[in-house]
Amino acid sequence: MELRRLFSRRLVVLAMAGALAVTGLLLLGVRQSAQPMSDEARAQAQAEYERARADWEENGEEIEAQCRADEELERESTGQDVDFGCESLEPQPEWFLVSAPELQDSLPGTVGAAATLLVFLAFLVGATFTAAEVSTGSLSTWLTFEPRRLRVYVAKLLAAALGVLPAAAVVLVVTVAGAWAVTDRYGLADGMTTRHWSGTGTMVLRILALTALFALVGAALGFLLRHTAAVLGVVVGYVIVVELMLMNYLGELQPWLVVKNVEGWINRGASYFVDVCTTGPTGTTCEFTERSLAFGHSAVYLVTLTAVVVLAGALVLRRRDAV
């Protein structure tokens, strides 16, 4: 019953159709990146490399010396241990002759891009499903036939979570199969081993689970805020104020941000950078330090967040006088 009500909403059907359309655009991008350079572009790139190489042979020592002088000047003015990469200025062929990435290197990024789309659409589907039920009065009518509110609440949340899974699975299968078909045409899929395919399969399963979680969160927020626009407004405000601003000014809080933990869930771990400053005899020195975010941290964080939002929605629905 609830699944039929879910798919009766036009926005839900359009969102799922839109996911397939965007998947087509994603595969078009894969095709463009997989195409080898044309003979004309390759000849032009080779000529540019030869010019850069000739200039380096003539002026390389001066260029490197100037780079190191600028590097030292920056250290003295900022007190930071900067590195301009002066030892890596010599032109290399790969800077000019672009090679298409192998499938084993490009597929995680392609699937990750599809995952970002699916997470957003799952959240939107869950929110619009329950918020519309509340705002239009359908929920109040339904509760006259089924007065057990928590049972209705659980049924609608499960419908949202289960309803998005088939479309998400289709999108992911089309993405993986399409990326393989496109890259295999250009001989870029030969490096895919059993280990790579196994990693892709587990990544797909993680994305499906994450999609269901975000559908649950969206559906619970729909009950809490009653209107789809209100849910989207709160989410956009959170992303701007917390995810973007705090991430820029308080880098050490990144392990507690939703976006970073979504990345950690999808990729089975993530990394982030913080500005670490130390004070010594010569003053304060700051440098960016890379830190890792474990998959277990992201999993516990997102499951706990989902549980909190779902429980909050249940409590509000149970205590609310009128829906």
Rank of each mutant, 00 (worst) to 15 (best):
V204Q: 04
I240M: 14
V154A: 12
W180M: 00
L225P: 11
T175D: 06
T200G: 00
A189T: 12
W142E: 10
V204N: 04
G187Y: 10
P255E: 12
P147C: 11
V173E: 03
G264A: 13
L253E: 00
L213E: 10
L257G: 09
T211S: 15
P147F: 09
V170W: 02
L257R: 07
L139G: 01
L162N: 01
V236I: 15
L143R: 06
A159S: 13
W197S: 05
V152G: 01
A155R: 13
I240C: 07
A155F: 03
R206K: 06
E243T: 09
V171A: 14
L162G: 07
G163W: 10
V236K: 08
W180L: 04
L158Y: 03
E146I: 05
A160M: 11
G199V: 02
A230W: 12
V235I: 15
A181K: 06
G137N: 07
V217D: 02
G137C: 12
T211H: 00
L150R: 12
E243W: 06
A219K: 08
L158V: 13
A155T: 11
V171I: 08
N248L: 13
V173K: 00
L172K: 03
V154M: 02
V152H: 00
A179H: 01
A155D: 12
A177Q: 11
L246H: 02
A230D: 10
K260R: 14
G178H: 10
D190N: 13
T202Q: 04
T183Q: 14
A215K: 04
V170K: 08
L210E: 01
V239F: 13
V231M: 09
T202K: 00
M247V: 04
F214D: 01
T202W: 09
T194G: 14
A181T: 13
T193F: 00
L253V: 14
A209R: 02
A168L: 01
V259M: 11
A159F: 07
E252V: 08
V235D: 05
P147V: 11
G191M: 03
L213F: 14
E146W: 03
F223T: 05
V154N: 01
P147K: 09
H227S: 15
V242E: 05
L221G: 04
E263V: 06
A209P: 06
A159R: 09
L257Y: 04
V262M: 15
F214N: 07
F223M: 09
A167P: 06
T141S: 08
V154C: 00
W197K: 04
W197D: 05
V234D: 08
S138N: 14
L150G: 08
A189S: 15
F145L: 14
L244N: 04
M203Q: 15
T211D: 03
Q254C: 01
K260N: 11
P255V: 09
V242Y: 12
E146T: 14
L224Q: 14
V241P: 02
Y238W: 14
N261G: 06
V171D: 04
A220L: 12
A177Y: 07
A229Y: 11
A168M: 05
A177E: 13
